[in-house]
């Protein structure tokens, strides 16, 4: 697309924003999941990603390396109003990808499918300049945060996920801080092309001026159709459920414990808690994934957890 927009810059910063239901109602009795109207937003971390992209673009622009920011959302038409808000905030273009299945409380395309759609959009934009993809790290619906990893994999570039601090450097370069285990931090120098994801607290999204807000109301959100941009159409990932199966809230399995036989109360409690019985020391085994899963289930069964007929294996 960049070649068809003359004057547009070689550098492209793509921000991925996810349209999520922030409040899902789960009926406690039936487990039916329902969304409320007007309840979808971009998450705080996605907003932070937009701000990081805008700041980076400004720094690179100021350094004489023209840069455009493009927001991409695989989401329903409802998201367009909020995409226009991002245009008011300073994003140069906003693209919405229409797919048969969008994120919602009841259907979830997989991260990989979303990533491949976003990569298809990125594909039309690469014009030889630097490419940076910025995502929020975790969305308000507690997604897996794995979309950026899939994007990096598909593009074949570096990734730095879950950043807690980002400083824009020379064109094509960022300095960032990432959390490590044990309260440690790691400073990174990231060179484009790269995919980064940022935490919500990295930056507060600016408040657009009144004039740009008004102007953005008549801006267009570009539309791509999942089928037409050649990426695989996301199918519903129904968490393994087939047709006609009902989703129900997760409840822990019942563990059957034999009645204690000790004559006195204290003895019965000691027996129930297993405090004095011999304890099998933990063991470490190295297995292939499906053997490992089976071993875990066998162990649970041995401990008395009932799987009933709907055993997951």
């Amino acid at each position: 697309m960049a070649e068809t927009s003359p004057g547009y810059a070689p550098n492209t910063i793509v921000v991925c924003v996810k349209w999520v239901a922030t409040h899902v109602h789960i009926d406690p009795l039936s487990g039916v999941v329902a969304e409320r109207s007007h309840d979808n937003q971009f998450s705080a971390s996605d907003h932070a990603a937009v701000e990081v992209a805008l700041r980076t673009a400004r720094a690179w622009n100021d350094a004489g390396s023209p840069t455009q920011v493009v927001a991409v959302c695989v989401g329903p038409v409802d998201s367009e109003d909020e995409l226009k808000v991002l245009i008011a905030d300073g994003v140069d273009r906003a693209i919405r990808v229409e797919a048969a299945t969008h994120y919602s409380a009841t259907s979830q395309p997989t991260s990989r499918q979303i990533a491949s759609l976003i990569c298809a959009v990125i594909g039309e934009m690469t014009s030889g300049g630097q490419l940076l993809v910025v995502c929020g790290d975790v969305s308000a619906d507690r997604g897996s945060g794995s979309v950026p990893a899939f994007i990096a994999h598909e593009i074949g570039c570096a990734q730095a996920l879950g950043l807690v601090e980002v400083h824009e450097g020379d064109p094509g370069v960022l300095r960032a801080m990432r959390r490590l285990d044990g309260g440690r931090r790691e400073e990174l120098v990231i060179e484009a092309p790269a995919v980064i994801s940022v935490e919500g607290a990295v930056a507060h999204l600016r408040r657009a001026s009144l004039q740009t807000t008004i102007a953005a109301r008549s801006a267009t959100v570009e539309l791509r159709n999942a089928r037409e941009i050649g990426a695989a159409e996301p199918a519903i990932a129904t968490s393994g459920l087939g047709d006609g199966m009902v989703m129900h809230p997760w409840r822990p399995r019942t563990r059957i414990v034999p009645a204690p036989v000790q004559p006195d109360a204290l003895g019965r409690i000691v027996e129930l808690t297993g405090a004095k019985s011999d304890r099998v020391p933990p063991r470490t085994v190295t297995l292939e994934p499906d053997e490992a899963a089976r071993a875990i289930l066998d162990q649970l069964a041995e401990w008395g957890y009932e799987w009933g007929q709907d055993s997951p294996i």
């Binding site: 408040r207 657009a208 001026s209 009144l210 004039q211 807000t213």
Partner: peptide, 9 residues
């Protein structure tokens, strides 16, 4: 006057 930057109309 609105609460946005440059918020007069």
């Amino acid at each position: 006057v609105t609460d946005r930057p440059d918020g007069e109309l």
